[in-house]
């Protein structure tokens, strides 16, 4: 067991280092601005007094490295400073929105993961049949469509024409869980369509790869019933690629959520990021980017760790 813990710790350490480098990139990119943030916020017509006051308020009179360390320390303790535009605390504005986004992503994942794995395995078993071809074209179309296309099609047919679901996923205080699921169904369905297609294709590829291995051939030749070949011989080795597929697609979900949130006016962190970018509210942009990057890295890390845990061969790197 010791070597597994060591390997996992090593992966975690690597993830932390990458996150640190990304925090440096995110922070110092803003420093690339000519002049500084204060100049960018107030525009060309700002008086020197105003500039000086804002600089003092934002701590811009200190050297960049000191400010970076302060920012990093705040970020670790979930304090990202104050918004330039509204002056409110960034963590407070983003906190609930981040929870909303996580809820939407989890909702979509809860539907998409079982469906796509079952479908992916079925399609892999029936490969090169007409159903496989149809599934191939359908998933390719779904992947190739921009998220807003799928979203608006769903709005048009499920909300405007038939009125089955609300077109705008607005949240209120004190909604019960069923109502919440109902109101956020369309954005979740949009994400499900995209992610299911990705996951199905990857699961299919992984399973086909597996079914081509000699020991499956051997099991078939010795007369094992087909279901037993799948359950006893193929499945134990299929967990590693499937876990990988799921984790990678959850990471994809986290970024795909930005466009979907804008389409459905869902109060999530993606919408906050887009608003902040168009208003050039840098503290919010930095905080959102760091959160997105951290989630992304965490899920990729989960994929690695899951692969290590389920595939003993990875524990002994050559």
């Amino acid at each position: 067991m010791g070597d597994i813990l060591g390997l996992v710790a090593k992966r975690l350490g690597l993830g932390l280092v990458i996150l640190l480098i990304i925090s440096v990139i995110i922070f110092f990119m803003v420093e690339l601005l000519p002049g500084d943030i204060a100049q960018a916020v107030l525009g060309q017509g700002a008086t020197p007094e105003n500039l000086a006051a804002l600089r003092k308020e934002m701590g811009l009179d200190q050297p960049a490295i000191v400010r970076y360390l302060g920012w990093l320390k705040g970020a670790v303790m979930l304090d990202f400073g104050n918004s330039i535009v509204t002056g409110a605390s960034v963590s407070e504005t983003i906190g609930t929105r981040f929870a909303n986004t996580l809820f939407l992503a989890a909702y979509a994942a809860a539907i998409a993961v079982p469906i796509s794995i079952v479908l992916g395995v079925l399609v892999a078993l029936a490969r090169n049949s007409i159903f496989d071809r149809v599934a191939n074209v359908a998933t390719l179309t779904s992947i190739s469509s921009p998220e807003f296309f799928l979203g608006y099609i769903l709005i048009l047919y499920l909300a405007v024409k038939t009125g089955m679901f609300p077109a705008i996923a607005s949240l209120r205080e004190g909604m019960d869980f069923g109502d919440l699921l109902y109101r956020t169904f369309l954005p979740a369905l949009t994400l499900v369509l995209v992610v299911t297609a990705h996951m199905m294709r990857m699961t299919r590829a992984a399973i086909i790869n597996l079914l081509a291995s000699p020991y499956i051939e051997m099991a078939r030749l010795k007369g094992t019933p087909p279901w037993k070949v799948i359950v006893k011989h193929a499945l134990p080795n299929a967990w590693a690629p499937i876990i990988n597929v799921v984790a990678l697609n959850l990471a994809y979900l986290i970024t795909g959520v930005v466009l979907v949130e804008v389409v459905f006016v869902y109060p999530g962190i993606g919408q906050a990021l887009v608003d902040a970018v168009s208003k050039r509210d840098f503290p919010v942009v930095q905080a959102c980017c760091l959160i997105f990057a951290a989630t992304f890295i965490l899920l990729n890390l989960a994929a690695d760790v899951g692969a290590i845990l389920t595939n003993p061969r990875l524990r002994h790197p050559k």
Binding site: A251, V258, I297
Partner: peptide
């Protein structure tokens, strides 16, 4: 390339556009 690829592309694009957009 590892580092750049570990930031989601849409997020990275938004970050860069927030800086190079506007007056720049």
């Amino acid at each position: 390339s590892d580092v750049i690829m570990s930031i989601p592309s849409l997020i990275f694009a938004l970050l860069m556009l927030s800086i190079f957009g506007g007056e720049l």
